[in-house]
């Protein structure tokens, strides 16, 4: 079938904007990463790989932010996937009450990160916060904490907030995945006298693999994008204990005016994301099954 050449016109408006405001900046990050540009003055010098050497060799805050980001990502990916999966199984039947609960658990997703940050700043507040009050009420005073002020646990407090924020969205994806599994597989298994664990292990889990792939991949990307939440809740503190790569880039560029170095970190950041995405797809693709 011959298609009129006019079809190429359909790409133009989107392509123009996408090239100027997305492709060009992404590529120029690479360019600026080899310079000592301060972001303001017109001239700058090419300094080769100096920015990269600086990041790899002596920048302990950068190393810390990469470590924090991986820890945050790992905690969120595991905890969020688990919560979403368990509650998807609990709420899989399409009853009125389950619809309501799914809608309730989904609700936080529609809020802005800033709103979620304020809500949890209040929950975690060492003096006013509901969390410490609740613990005191239950006679568990020894567990009360400065949840965001204690550098040893602040990153986990943030990760928990992230899970609260987005687990409902992942739950819906798992529910859709569960509904796609043919019912006769379950009936056959029951007739054969399979236990609930066996049914989960042999039917539900393997057939849910596509949904799990999506959930884990999406959760990972989201955990790298948690900039807004971290920025509004802790700003990377205390003492860099919640500094993630994105908040670090922001502070180098817009507080330190070291655009060249910030660009180099951005490029490394992109590399890390690409690597993790690649590993995930390799691992998750290998355990797909079909019946």
């Amino acid at each position: 079938m011959k298609i009129s050449k006019s079809i190429y016109l359909f790409f133009i408006p989107g392509l123009v904007l996408y090239s100027i405001f997305f492709v060009f900046p992404t590529l120029s990050a690479l360019f600026y990463s080899f310079t000592d540009w301060d972001g303001i003055s017109a001239d700058f010098n090419f300094i080769g790989f100096e920015n990269y050497q600086r990041a790899a060799a002596g920048d302990s805050i950068f190393m810390k932010s990469v470590g924090n980001n991986l820890e945050f990502m790992f905690f969120v990916a595991v905890f969020q996937t688990l919560v979403a999966l368990v509650f998807a199984i609990f709420l899989v039947k399409n009853t009125k009450f389950n619809y309501f609960l799914r809608a309730l658990f989904f609700f936080p997703t529609i809020l802005s990160s800033v709103s979620v940050a304020f809500i949890w700043a209040f929950v975690y507040d060492p003096n006013l916060g509901i969390l410490n009050q609740l613990l005191s009420l239950l006679g568990l005073e020894f567990l009360t904490q400065n949840w965001l002020g204690n550098g040893d646990i602040a990153i986990y407090s943030l990760a928990f907030t992230q899970v609260w924020f987005h687990a409902g969205q992942m739950l819906i994806i798992f529910v859709a995945g569960l509904h796609a599994i043919p019912n006769d597989l379950y009936e056959a298994a029951k007739i054969e006298g399979a236990s609930r664990w066996q049914i989960f292990k042999k039917i539900t889990w393997p057939l849910l693999a596509p949904s799990a792939t999506i959930v884990i991949a999406y959760t990972t990307i989201q955990s790298f994008q948690a900039f807004d939440l971290v920025f509004a809740l802790t700003g990377g503190g205390p003492n860099y204990s919640t500094e993630i790569i994105a908040t670090y880039i922001y502070s180098i560029a817009f507080r330190g005016y070291d655009f060249g170095y910030a660009s180099a970190i951005s490029v490394i950041f992109m590399g890390i994301i690409a690597l993790i995405t690649y590993i995930q797809f390799k691992v998750l693709r290998s355990n797909r099954v079909s019946y």
């Binding site: 996408y18 900046p25 990050a29 972001g39 990307i221 951005s266």
Partner: peptide
């Protein structure tokens, strides 16, 4: 090719290019 060009943007979080985007 066009599909790949556009959708690869999904894998790149906006925080990655915020520095050059700001200059632009």
């Amino acid at each position: 090719v066009l599909f790949a060009l556009f959708t690869i943007g999904m894998m790149i979080p906006p925080q990655v290019n915020m520095v050059p985007l700001y200059s632009l």
